[in-house]
Design a protein around this nucleic acid. Sequence first.
DNA 1: ACCGCGATGTATCGGACCGATACATCGCAC
DNA 2: GTGCGATGTATCGGTCCGATACATCGCGGT
Lengths: 212, 212
Amino acid sequence: MLELAILGLLQEAPMHGYELRKELTAKLGAIRAAISYGSLYPTLRRLQAAGWITEAAETPATAEEVPALTSRRGRVVYTITAEGKERFAQLIAQAGPETYDDTGFGVHFAFFARTDQATRLRILEGRRRKIEERREGLRDVLGRAAERLDAYTLELQRHGLDACEREVRWLEELIANERSGRAPADPRTGTADGRRDNDSPPTPGTSRTERP
Amino acid sequence: MLELAILGLLQEAPMHGYELRKELTAKLGAIRAAISYGSLYPTLRRLQAAGWITEAAETPATAEEVPALTSRRGRVVYTITAEGKERFAQLIAQAGPETYDDTGFGVHFAFFARTDQATRLRILEGRRRKIEERREGLRDVLGRAAERLDAYTLELQRHGLDACEREVRWLEELIANERSGRAPADPRTGTADGRRDNDSPPTPGTSRTERP
DNA sequence: ACCGCGATGTATCGGACCGATACATCGCAC
DNA sequence: GTGCGATGTATCGGTCCGATACATCGCGGT
């Protein structure tokens, strides 16, 4: 999963580790707390060994100019390679079971702007199916095994069930949006989106159900 | 986390691995998919080594009786020890930072029936604080960095923000419930904390906001 | 003039947990 | 009588996290 996220982010710009982590946190903040360096750096090493990215020590340009003064330590900048871009496309397109778990889905979704519509649809539907299964499991427990569990456990299940139902509804909206008419596209690619004010708003479903 | 969950479950009854996994899945179904045997068995071994639990091969009672016929393979039954119960109480009471992340909180909450009220309150408030921080982070991104992100990523953040707000509200209810007397509002169970077993722990709040 | 301190930055290590896999038994339906 | 799904125990490689260590930079306080 980290591999996919890194490849996706480096496609926007070369970055060094610290920066990468910040961008990762900003992009995936909704689904995971913060990527640990304990996973980030080994993964970067792995990607480099595989040839998907290259790492280059940041040179302060014209090394002749400023020899050792303010020596500009470290700062390894990572750049994605052509093979890396291929790898990213492949990872995006092929959907394993892990594509539909919480983290996997979140990462895939975060890069939907780089994903073709058919794949987007496939992933959204796969996710919906998975959440529906979880929902049924919770309903079963709440129905059949309710008296075996204490009130707190039951409340936890209810809260989880609620979250499932809500997510299914959210996914339904996204799927409907994806099917009828085109979807919100990355403004940078210029496709299907000129202004984003009130004309064919690219924002997916209006899931803003305000509290009464 | 697994350690805590196993200790908690074995306090209700001795079990063998397969059973333990099923109960674990039923109890924690709202927060994690299913515990892997790849974590369960090593953890059981670890707990046994530490003396928190004992394992005993299931004997078909009166081994003399039925010697080798239908030989009743395997089936190692795990039982919690007195030290294990102490360990459980200690783990429940002491709250580290991991107590407030998604999984940690879920597990702690699932055993609130075995947790004293002061600790419950502390955990609920810690969780609320953590979620509020996550919420602020998401608001920041949606406010400040909105134009740097594509529509899908933004939608993901919005959905996450929505979930945060919802959980904070849920926690508020639970906290209020926990504070004002012990036994909340649900079904009239009469005595709140009089009888101690697994019979009728204080039922948490009615967060059942039905959808029209 | 000096110092601390928080942000920036790279990196490793042990441990928790998962997914795949292997293997054996039981009851039951075909 | 045979396959097949549920029950049941167990290991292995790999991903990721949390703690930790260490170094530099710019800034404000004294």
